Amino acid sequence: MIDAHSAGILPCQAIEDLIAQEAIGSLTPFDADQVQPASLDLRLAERAWRVRASFLPRGKRVKERLLDVSMHELDLTKGAVFERGCVYIAEVQERLALPGGVAARGNPKSSTGRVDVFVRLLTDYGAAFDDVAEGYEGPLYVEIAPQTFSVLARTGTRLNQLRLKRGLVPHLSTRDVGVDLSTGMVGFRGRRHAGVIDLDKEDGHDPRDFWEPLEARNGELLLDPNEFYILASKDDVVIPVLEAAEMTPIDPAVGEFRVHYAGFFDPGFGAEETLSKGSKGVLEVRSRETPFLLEDGQTVARLVYEPLTAQPQRLYGEGGSHYLRQGLKLSKHFRPWK
C-alpha cells in the first residue's frame, strides 16, 4: 500500500496498488510492462482530432473545447499519420479516480522526445498542461504536435508517461547538465522533409534518412535557428534507487536554445552493477530564432532530484531497455548508426 505519511514519488508497487484499487483504470487490460519503476506508460485510445490550435480546458471538459477547435477526426485503430507542423488531440486509454493526497504529472517518453514530437497531457477543467490535480477523477487526453518528422501512431502507441506523487514533494538536490562537444561525432541534426516514422517499429528505420551526423570544431557547435539536435551530456548521470529525477530547461537568458521537453529519469538509471560511474544523458536540443554557438561543457539543462515514498521493487533497466548504458544514441526506432 501507499505510505500515507511520506511525501514523494510513488514507486511501481504503489502504482500497481492504485490499479488494483481502480484508482487508475483502463478501457483495455493493462500491458504487463506498462508500469515502470516510478511511472506509468499511457496508451493512445481509438480517436484523435486535428485541431486548429492548442488550448487549455480551463473550467470545461476537453470534449467541450474540442467542439470549438476540431477540424476532422482520425481513426487510430487503423493507424494514422500525425503530420509535422500540425496539432492533434488524442484520447488516452487510461483514466483516473485518484484518492485524496495523490496528484500526478505527465511527460513525454524518451523515444517520443528524441523524434521531436511535442506531447502534453490534458485533463478536464485543467488550467495547466501535464499537471493532474490531487484527487482528479476523469479521462486523460494528449496534445500531439510533431515538429521535425511526421509520425505514424495507432491505438496502443505509448507517447507519454504519468508520474504519481503524494503530498508536496521536496527537491532533494539539483545538478547542472553540460553538453559534450569534445571530440569525434558529437550529435545529430534532424533532416527536414524526411519520411514518416512508425512509432511502434523498433530498429526499423535507416537513421541516415532522418539524421545528419555532426562533428564539433574546437569544442564548439553552431546551432542553426529552428533546428532540432540530439546531443549527449558531458558527465555521466546516476539516479539513486530511492530517488527519481526530472530534466528541466534552464533560464533562456543563458542562451538561444532549450533542452527539449523535460524528461523523467527512473530510479537506478546509470546505477547498474556493470557501470562504474553512470550513463550519459541524451539531450534533445531545439535552437530558437537566433544562431547560437554552443561550447563544450556548457550548461544546457538541470536535473532536479526528488524522493520516492519507498524503494521500487524494480529498477531502471531490469528486464532490458533500449537505452541501457547509452551513450550518444538515437531513439529506438532507428537501426544503429554505421
Rank of each mutant, 00 (worst) to 15 (best):
I2M: 05
D3E: 13
A4W: 07
H5K: 14
S6M: 07
L10A: 02
L10R: 01
C12K: 15
Q36D: 05
L40F: 09
E46H: 11
W49H: 04
V51L: 06
V51P: 02
R52T: 08
S54A: 15
F55G: 01
P57K: 09
E64H: 01
E64V: 01
L66D: 05
L66S: 04
D68A: 12
S70Q: 12
E73A: 02
L74M: 03
L76I: 09
G85Q: 00
Y88G: 06
Q93E: 13
P99S: 07
G100E: 15
V102E: 11
K109R: 15
S110T: 12
S111C: 11
T112N: 08
T112E: 09
V119G: 05
D124C: 02
A128F: 08
D131I: 04
E134G: 07
G135W: 09
P146S: 03
S150L: 00
T157H: 07
L159W: 08
L162D: 11
R163H: 05
L164Y: 06
K165W: 10
P170E: 03
H171W: 10
L172E: 14
V177Y: 00
G184Y: 11
M185G: 04
M185R: 15
G187M: 01
G187H: 02
G190V: 05
R191E: 00
R192K: 14
I197R: 03
D198F: 03
D203S: 09
L214Q: 10
D224A: 15
P225H: 07
P225S: 04
N226C: 12
F228K: 11
L231D: 00
V237K: 05
V238R: 15
V238E: 15
V241N: 15
V241L: 14
L242A: 14
L242Y: 11
P249T: 14
I250R: 05
F257Q: 13
V259H: 08
H260Q: 08
E272S: 14
E273P: 06
L275K: 12
S276L: 06
K277I: 01
G278P: 02
S279C: 14
E284V: 03
S287W: 07
T290W: 08
T290P: 01
V304C: 11
V304Q: 11
Q313C: 11
R314G: 05
L315W: 13
G317R: 09
S321M: 06
H322V: 06
G327R: 12
F334P: 04
K338F: 05
